[in-house]
Design a protein around this nucleic acid. Structure first.
Lengths: 161, 161
DNA sequence: TAAATAGGTCAGTATTATTGACTCATCGGC
DNA sequence: GCCGATGAGTCAATAATACTGACCTATTTA
């Protein structure tokens, strides 16, 4: 006999809190074993993911997406550059910028990490069906702030349908 | 001109990675300002949330849900008990157990934190509509591991519809 | 030329988590 | 009633991720 208090929307929000916690936990866990083998953390994975998704992006752009400080990113990015997973090139238009790309081995690593999360997510989407995915996408987009939505659109995350 | 490589499902999974990252980030951020005022962290919020949702749960059950170690929980739970937000009662059937409940002030605090996330989530669900929410729920349930799904069911998270 | 911007760096600290090794009280089966 | 298993708590050391604040360099722009 759970929460029978509150409005319908209150109960919906409580449910959603649980859904977000468990789904996000298991989604991120999917890549953890591999990350530990390599000796990297989730922060490194996030950086690899977004650099792979937006090749040639600047450090500022990555900072804006991750919403962490320059000093926090420095450690992570330093590790990735040192170990040869990420390359930095001077910007053409603005030579102060460092354009970030994955190296060949960085792309290979990202691919292996991607495979883990693919194994977690793809069966879920198959099971739930395309209409459910459309609803999922609509809700997730509505939850995030407008700036994140435009980042998504800029990245070419058009409805995959 | 983004990822045109990979299968349709590959692109769907890439999109989902972004959706999960941004939505979860902004969902958790919603309560952060209030948490900082109170001098607590997200880990404290998670504990308050699940204790409020499952009153009388044991420490073991909470550990199983959060999937952290006893030592990690000890700090968080210690803070919450010391500051009078959580009460511990000896179990009736098994007196080794400590049954966790929110105190009056704990429930009040959880309510204030809940309000922040309500303000983030409710408008999103209103905007996306009930069918989208159903799809969101189906996908999120499918992403999490079976154990988490049964925790959800046990908590009375029946389809809110 | 001067201010602003992109990026990097050093130093110190906080939060959340980990592993490992214990103690104590209580339960349950024999 | 004893004894191993279990629920909970604790001490100590460490790691990952993040923060603030203060600087520095190179480059762009007004």
């Amino acid at each position: 006999m759970p929460d029978s208090r509150g409005t319908d929307m209150d109960r919906t929000v409580r449910l959603a809190q649980d859904l977000l916690f468990f789904a996000y936990r298991d989604f991120t866990n999917a890549a953890d074993v591999l990350l530990e083998e390599i000796g990297l953390g989730r922060a490194h994975h996030r950086a690899l993911h977004f650099i792979g998704r937006n090749p040639g992006m600047t450090v500022s752009e990555l900072l804006a997406i991750l919403r962490i400080t320059k000093q926090s990113l420095a450690r992570v990015l330093g590790d990735l550059v040192t170990r040869g997973f990420v390359a930095q090139a001077k910007g053409g238009a603005d030579r102060r910028q460092r354009l970030l790309t994955l190296t060949e081995s960085g792309a290979a690593l990202e691919q292996r990490l991607f495979a883990r999360q693919h194994a977690c997510l793809a069966p879920a989407f198959e099971a739930a069906g395309p209409e459910a995915f459309a609803g999922f996408q609509a809700v997730m987009r509505a939850i995030m702030d407008p700036e994140a939505r435009s980042v998504l659109d800029a990245a070419g995350d058009t409805d995959v349908r």
